[in-house]
């Protein structure tokens, strides 16, 4: 009961308060509040200005500058690395060309060496062949001489046998001479 009365009283007071509060016109034109608003606005603006100019703006500006710097540095580093890569490629190509030249030189050298060795061997072989040929000729001449001797001996023997068979007595020396003459002729 007491609370109800209290509530009722409260509502009534509220209603009265609200009615009193209801502005007849625009609260914006209530000049009595102007000094208050202006004072607090100036305080607010000064506080915001100090916070922004002392703390917030330098910090954000610094962050942005730092980021720009980082990006620029990264780009420069990338440029650097790219140049290095190009250099490395050039060095690689150079090395490749050098190696090719070197290889060709070595090949030519080897070829010349082989050629020289070959020439030597050919000369040696020619000499050997010539020596062998001379030897062979000598051997052939010997053989031929031997053969002549043999033929003469055979012819002698044969002539003696023939003379004997024909009933004569063969004078070995005379027969031999005659055969020698014949063979010579």
């Amino acid at each position: 009961m007491a609370t109800e009365t209290h509530d009722a009283g409260h509502t009534a007071a509220d209603a009265a308060h609200a009615a009193a509060d209801s502005a007849p016109g625009m609260p914006q034109l209530d000049f009595a509040t102007y000094p208050n608003q202006i004072f607090w606005l100036l305080v607010t603006l000064v506080v915001i200005y100090l916070i922004l100019s002392r703390v917030a703006l330098p910090r954000i500006g610094g962050i942005l500058a730092e980021r720009t710097g980082t990006i620029t540095n990264d780009l420069a580093a990338a440029e650097d690395l790219k140049a290095k890569a190009v250099d490395a490629e050039a060095a690689y190509n150079q090395a490749l060309a050098d190696a090719r030249v070197e290889a060709q030189r070595i090949a030519a050298e080897a070829r010349a060496e082989i050629q020289a060795g070959l020439d030597d061997a050919i000369v040696k072989a020619d000499a050997e062949i010539a020596a062998k040929a001379a030897e062979s000729e000598k051997a052939i001449a010997e053989i031929r001489a031997n053969a002549l001797e043999s033929i003469k001996a055979v012819a002698d023997d044969t002539a003696v046998e023939i003379v004997t068979a024909m009933g004569g007595t063969a004078d070995a020396a005379a027969v031999s001479d005659a055969v020698a003459n014949r063979v010579k002729g």
Binding site: A32, T33, N36, Q37, W40
Partner: peptide
């Protein structure tokens, strides 16, 4: 509402 009174505006 004096000039220094804290109000809902402040």
């Amino acid at each position: 509402i004096a000039w220094y009174t804290p109000t809902n505006a402040s």
